[in-house]
């Protein structure tokens, strides 16, 4: 079987598995998994930039929050219905990505990390500053009555799960395909050796810029979906912590692998869920995981699987 056929089957299998799980899981886990799929979509967006292009952003929460607030404010104050509001969410994130891309890509390495961190911090503070509309830290709830699409109630757990699955599968299949075609392979080339890639005639800046745009837009789509499906919009999602999470999920699951973001999000979510049962210091787990991953397991779970058993793993 060719590698691309294998990876197609793998992705189909993952999606089918998630579909079947929806009918077998308890309500509690079903709810969790719906949330995880949206967060994994966020991680997929992050992975486009970090895993495949090699650009480490410390500010992706700004894109997640842009999507979330784009949707939330459009629904709350614009009276929009979910579908156009979702489009507004993605568009907001896309516009922000363009601005951040143009500016931050003038820097590299550590400076890029700090610039993205600072931009995200500004976005967070701006959300707090306009507390009259954004409700600041408290956030606001999108009422159940507004969360209806084509006669379907997005607050219904099953429908919510399927909507999350639709979002996740789209992001997974789109990015997996992207990494097989020329554009994605050039992104990897940029990650591996930027100067070489430029000297082979590829426009490195254009590729990095598009990677920021795609990554930011997918993250924004995840943020918008999170607001819509779980009915809450709040400044926490713009905080540093939410910029660190996707980094953590992707590092844990395997940077530069297609299903690593899902694997990482599942593991971390349950680890934190489990530990918050007996301590409120659950972020300790996140901190420990980060340190251990950079020290001992840079490739992450799927990266290690790829190295040992399955070199074809996409």
């Amino acid at each position: 079987m060719s590698p691309s056929a294998r990876s197609f089957l793998l992705h189909l299998g993952v999606i089918a598995g998630l579909f079947v799980l929806c009918f077998t899981l308890s309500d509690y886990h079903q709810g969790n998994l719906a949330r995880i799929m949206v967060l994994a979509t966020y991680a997929i967006g992050y992975n486009v930039l970090f895993g495949y292009t090699g650009l480490l952003s410390l500010g992706h929460a700004m894109f997640f929050a842009a999507g979330m607030y784009g949707l939330g404010l459009a629904m709350q104050y614009g009276g929009m219905s979910p579908v156009p509001a979702f489009a507004v969410g993605i568009l907001t994130a896309a516009v922000l990505s363009v601005v951040v891309g143009v500016l931050a890509l003038r820097t590299i390495g550590v400076a890029f990390m700090i610039v993205t961190l600072m931009f995200a911090q500004s976005v967070f503070l701006i959300i707090l500053y306009f507390g009259t509309w954004t409700r600041g830290d408290e956030g606001f709830v999108i009422p159940q009555a507004a969360r209806q699409v084509l006669g379907m109630d997005l607050t219904d757990p099953l429908i919510r799960y399927l909507a999350a699955l639709l979002l996740f599968s789209s992001a997974l299949l789109i990015t997996a395909r992207m990494m097989q075609v020329r554009f994605g392979r050039v992104l990897i080339a940029v990650r591996e050796n930027e100067e070489r890639t430029q000297m082979l005639g590829y426009d490195v800046f254009r590729h990095k810029f598009l990677a920021v745009l795609i990554s930011g837009s997918i993250s924004g789509a995840a943020g918008a979906a999170y607001g819509l499906l779980f009915g809450y919009v709040g400044a926490t999602f713009a905080s540093v912590q939410y910029s660190i999470f996707p980094l953590l999920w992707v590092l844990l699951g395997g940077a530069g692998t297609t299903i690593g973001p899902l694997v990482g999000a599942v593991f971390m979510f349950y680890l934190i869920d489990y530990s918050s049962g007996f301590t409120n210091a659950y972020m300790l787990i996140a901190g420990l995981a980060l340190v251990l991953l950079v020290l001992f397991a840079r490739a992450g779970i799927m990266g290690e699987v790829r190295r040992r058993w399955a070199p074809w793993l996409p």
Partner: peptide
């Protein structure tokens, strides 16, 4: 940087 973020938490 990633490690010191971990140490922070």
């Amino acid at each position: 940087i990633v490690a010191t973020i971990g140490i922070l938490y």
